[in-house]
Write a protein that binds this DNA or RNA. Structure first.
Lengths: 143, 143
DNA sequence: GGATAATCTTTGACACATCAATAATTGCGT
DNA sequence: ACGCAATTATTGATGTGTCAAAGATTATCC
């Protein structure tokens, strides 16, 4: 047996990529043309109205540049609107349109199904343990 | 406590991204200008001489298009050479240059250190358990 | 042995990641 | 007030991911 240290990151990549491919495929075959990142972005704006892009970036674990571009596409798709922030003109206020809300709500169901499918046959105790390990890895890498 | 199903994929992404950022930063500050994916690609060619790009893609869990582009950059960097396969002219034979070998060898050490750091304070039994879960997720997403 | 199918790789189009540099605006110190 | 630092967002450059289509070559089948 190979040393687990030397393969675990590969396995991590593989699992997350399998899930992403699977999830994106499901969304597509359900008739939506939105990416998971875009869905997650809108979701977070809804949950935190008035959030600034910088905070948004942290929430979805991306950087500012990526957020700028994702927002751009979402505005083009008419799922978001930009407004200049009243008190601070450096900031942008992001507003989810009715279309945006509708899409997110519908895609939500698909995502729930995806997660259930992906986690089939795994017991919750083990998941909690994994969550713990992931947390340690994350902090180990942030010093 | 939130439902673990609804956050575990987020945690997965976060952990893998933290590790990637950390690892790439370490490689850079060690004086190398190679990406982890490029390193992994060369590594696999060395381990499987004469491998075809399609198989290579599977090994590093990418698709053919990505491999084509990574190889392109590695040829530019003079870490790889392309040759037409003798028996089958559709194929490309990939050859690692001396420079390529040297870089990989040196970067290897950095990567070993990175992994050790990232897995600090985690016991191996738990890692094995996580490996198992990751495997289940991967197969659940591939039907 | 010539049409057709299968295999291997590349290319195009678009989305996202990362780093560094640049605007634009606000806040602070004196 | 003024200059300068800090904050917020955008842009440019380069690398990777994904899907679909196309090119090139080889295998198959009648």
């Amino acid at each position: 047996m190979e040393n687990i240290d030397q393969v675990i990151f590969y396995k991590l990549e593989k699992a997350i990529r399998s899930y992403r491919q699977f999830a994106q495929r499901q969304i597509k075959t359900s008739g939506f043309s939105i990416t998971i990142d875009q869905w997650l972005t809108i979701q977070n704006i809804l949950e935190h109205p008035g959030i600034k892009q910088q905070e948004l970036a942290e929430k979805v674990f991306k950087d500012n540049a990526s957020i700028t571009r994702i927002v751009e596409l979402l505005v083009k798709a008419k799922y978001l609107k930009r407004k200049v922030h009243k008190a601070d003109r450096r900031r942008t206020t992001l507003i989810v349109t009715k279309e945006g809300e509708e899409v997110v709500e519908k895609v939500n169901e698909v995502i729930l199904q995806n997660r259930a499918k992906a986690l089939q046959e795994i017991d919750r105790e083990q998941l909690m343990a994994m969550d713990n390990i992931l947390h340690i890895i994350t902090t180990n890498c942030q010093e």
